[in-house]
């Protein structure tokens, strides 16, 4: 179990590293060179040469990669050249990352219970109206563009705040300890600020929750239906356990593994959703940062963000593996036997 988890961790790390190297090299092979792309066609040769020298782009690419990785290991990701004040990329990422995590976790807190409920109801009322409505809702959920949904919610709830993390009139200065506004405001005992932060979170979190909720509902439904046909469920029913009891205590835990491994895979969906949701709601997080860095061609910022997201990807994948094994003793034993 332990060994196979480590093997998978290494595999994921190698994949992410390969992705990062490809991005790193591709940026340096930008047609005309990254400096020209950043400064625009009208830049003079001297300006281009200076930027190339400043960023180290005049050195061989393998050397650049080596230097970058050595510095990255020390927490230095260079400067965001095109941002006002040229801040350090690592500082920017550290500042924005909690915003995205807060948004994503809130979205999951909405998506998981709702998706599970919807999927369970659908399975319990298979081929009847509740099932059909649940299927229709989840089809709509995966088809509606997330940015359109965000705008629709803003139209439907005009009184809810539609941009930023907190009222612009207030400052988090002094109480901004973890970067998670809900936690910081509570720790400082500022109830009105907590309310403001929570209200700002509602619409973006609902928007981001839609796609995962729809997918969780689908998988819950189909894995429940599969489990409900199995022998141990029939035994439980024969023993006299009622329908609800079977569904909640016997079938749902049995269906947990596909749902959890799905949640791990949903990370990519969540991230894509975060880019769009953060753009619609001007939410100051990593998704919006990546989008801005990409469209402004701020390459240092872009590659730093890619590196960070890659590391998050590895961590979430590993956590998913461990959770799956936790929920399904068969996986633990099978992998133990294979070692």
């Amino acid at each position: 179990m332990f060994l196979s988890a480590v093997t998978r961790l290494i595999r994921a790390a190698v994949t992410v590293f390969a992705v990062f190297v490809i991005v790193f090299v591709a940026i340096r092979l930008t047609p005309g060179g990254p400096a020209v792309a950043m400064l625009g066609q009208r830049a003079t040769e001297a300006e281009v040469a200076r930027l190339n020298h400043e960023m180290g782009w005049d050195r061989p690419i393998p050397e650049q990669l080596f230097r970058y990785l050595v510095r990255a290991a020390q927490g230095d990701l260079g400067i965001a050249y095109l941002s006002p004040g040229r801040p350090k990329v690592s500082k920017e990422l550290a500042r924005l990352f909690p915003a995205t995590v807060e948004l994503t976790l809130s979205a999951l807190l909405i998506a998981i219970p709702l998706g599970l409920t919807l999927g369970t109801i659908a399975a319990a009322f298979r081929d009847r109206w509740p099932d059909r409505i649940a299927i229709a809702l989840s089809s709509l959920g995966v088809s509606i563009p997330i940015f359109f949904l965000g705008i629709l919610l803003l139209l439907l709830f005009p009184s809810m705040p539609g941009s930023g993390r907190i009222d612009i009139s207030v400052s988090m200065r002094g109480i901004d300890r973890t970067g998670f506004y809900l936690i910081d405001t509570l720790l400082a005992g500022r109830w009105n600020l907590f309310q403001s932060a929570a209200r700002h979170l509602v619409l973006p979190a609902m928007t981001l929750a839609t796609v995962p909720m729809a997918i969780i509902a689908r998988v819950t439904r189909s894995s429940l239906l599969e489990v409900l046909g199995s022998d141990y469920i029939r035994t439980a029913r024969a023993k006299g356990v009622n329908r609800t009891g079977v569904l909640l205590h016997h079938a749902l835990p049995g269906a947990a593994v596909p749902i959890i491994s799905l949640l791990g895979l949903q990370l990519a969906t969540l991230l894509a959703g975060a880019v769009l949701t953060e753009t619609v709601f001007t939410w100051p997080g990593i998704g919006r940062y990546v989008m801005l860095a990409a469209s402004q061609k701020d390459y240092n910022a872009l590659q730093g963000a890619v590196l960070l997201l890659g590391i998050v990807f590895i961590l979430v994948n590993t956590a998913t593996d461990v959770l799956c094994a936790w929920f399904d003793p068969r996986i633990r034993r099978r992998e133990g036997a294979s070692e």
């Binding site: 930008t30 792309a37 894509a272 990546v290 990409a294």
Partner: peptide
């Protein structure tokens, strides 16, 4: 997908 697209279009 969207990250891949963002990087590609940025380049």
């Amino acid at each position: 997908g969207i990250l891949l697209a963002l990087v590609m279009i940025s380049i």
